[in-house]
Every structure is written in structure tokens, then in C-alpha cells.
Design a protein around this nucleic acid. Structure first.
Lengths: 120, 120
DNA sequence: CGGTTAATTAACTCAAAGGTTAAATATAAG
DNA sequence: CTTATATTTAACCTTTGAGTTAATTAACCG
């Protein structure tokens, strides 16, 4: 269950759908109407409307009113939170530190095993 | 619906749960058994086991066998993909003034590069 | 062997996600 | 006022996700 007061969870959940990520990508080139956003997708307009609601609720887009159109624009604020969160793990995919960490973890484990065996 | 062959969707979906992110955080300080991982959470062991399965399926953790223990270790590979994806939007939270054209040119170049890399 | 510990699988519940079609709303244009 | 266009809401369906308890598997230990 995704808790509603958990910004990161809401953001990640919103991003976990290729349609929604495609919408964000499109909005990166500027404000667009719902119909234009929906065009490339093989789904009904209400479906796209729902995706937009999810993105809006996650704070990833904002909407205004222009006659009968509801133009959407990108709001990347929550994406900064994502970038910050993932940056904490950077050292794990840069292999130098990765190997060292794994080595140290292994070493610790073996020491604990030896201690346990000696005590018993 | 999250498509199974879509790595980013699977990764984001796995990260959209605070329990799973907490598990990853714990694994950042080294391999641990399932029971130890489960300890801080107010849920049953099978529930944690399921979370681990989700993380494993997303390639975010790997498991080995040590007697009756199944130690888990972090695998940050998919997190690099997340970092790469989100980095495309960096300008939107960094720049106050409009550099849209430059951004789009860059994005297109990077996307082409990624496609080539995946096909390889 | 029999018992204990670690972890998973099975079977189930319940809520939420993602989609549909049909109806409703809002605004503009004749 | 009526009609066309843009979009949302309503009602519904089906699948998935997250949790539960009870049973099962796997490995160790005395």
C-alpha cells in the first residue's frame, strides 16, 4: 500500500507507468492540451485524463484553463526529490566502491561466524 | 498496467513502497538475513518475503544461500537507470530561465544513445 | 531420528490501479 | 438557444498489490 503522505512513494508510483512517463516527456517541450497529449496513445481519453490526475496529484504537472482547453505543464519539483534519493546509492553502481563494500561485508560476516562458533 | 518488459516501470513500481525503500537502505550497510531485515517492520515475515521477491524481480537485490539463511544484498544497477532517466529533467528544477531548445536537443541525443546501447 | 530455526508457498481477503463506455459539464461559435 | 469541441465524472470490470494465517520446505543441531 502506498501511503498518501509519503511524497517519494507517490512520485515513484506515478512514474511507474510508461504512459505517464511519456506524457512527462512530451510536456518537457511545453504546455499541451489533453487531447494532444492523448493522441499518440492507444487508449481512451478518460484513461489519459486519469493518468493526468495521477500526475497532478503527485505534483508532477499543473493545469490551467484556456477556454475549453485544460493545458498541462510539467512541474519537476518531485523529480528533484527522486534525484536526491537515488544519489545516495550512487557509490553502489560505481564499481570501485561497490567491490570494496562487498569485500568488507563478506569479511564482517565471516568474523561473526567464527565468533559464534567459538562461543558454542 | 505495468509492463513486465519495461525495466524503468518495474524499478519505479518496486521503489514506490516505503518498506521496500527501507529495505534497500538497510542493505546499503551490508548483506542481511530476511529475519533481520523484517525486524523493524510491523508486518509478518511472509509480507517481507514478498517485498523481497518484488525487489529481486526488479533486479534491485540478489540472494544467496548460507545454511538456512538467505542473505540479501543490494544490487544498484537499476538505480543507475533511474538516475539517468531523472537527470534528463534536471534543468526543469535547476534553471529559472528558459533554456528549452538547448534541453530538447540534448534529450534527443541522449535518447538515441540509449536506444543504441540497449540494442547491443 | 526428532526438534528448532529460517524462509517460502498456499490460500485467502480487501483495496487500488488501469482500463472501458456512456453521460455530464464547460466553453465557444453559429 | 443550439450545437460542436474539450474534458471530466460515473459506473462498471478485471487484474494486481499488499497484507493475513497456516502449512511446507530446507538446513542445522543434539
Amino acid at each position: 500500500m502506498v501511503k498518501d503522505n509519503d511524497i517519494l512513494s507517490t512520485t515513484f508510483a506515478a512514474l511507474a507507468d510508461p504512459t505517464r512517463r511519456a506524457i512527462l516527456a512530451k510536456l518537457a517541450s511545453g504546455e499541451t492540451s489533453v487531447t494532444k497529449l492523448a493522441e499518440p496513445f492507444d487508449m481512451s481519453l478518460p484513461a489519459v485524463s486519469k493518468h493526468l490526475k495521477v500526475l497532478e496529484h503527485a505534483g508532477l504537472i499543473a493545469r490551467s484553463r484556456d477556454a475549453q482547453w485544460r493545458p498541462c505543464r510539467l512541474d519537476a519539483g518531485p523529480l528533484k526529490e527522486v534525484a536526491d534519493w537515488v544519489s545516495h546509492y550512487r557509490r553502489f553502481w560505481e564499481d570501485t566502491f561497490d567491490r570494496l563494500d562487498e569485500y568488507l561485508t563478506n569479511l564482517k560476516k565471516k568474523e561473526k561466524k567464527n565468533v559464534r562458533r567459538r562461543k558454542k
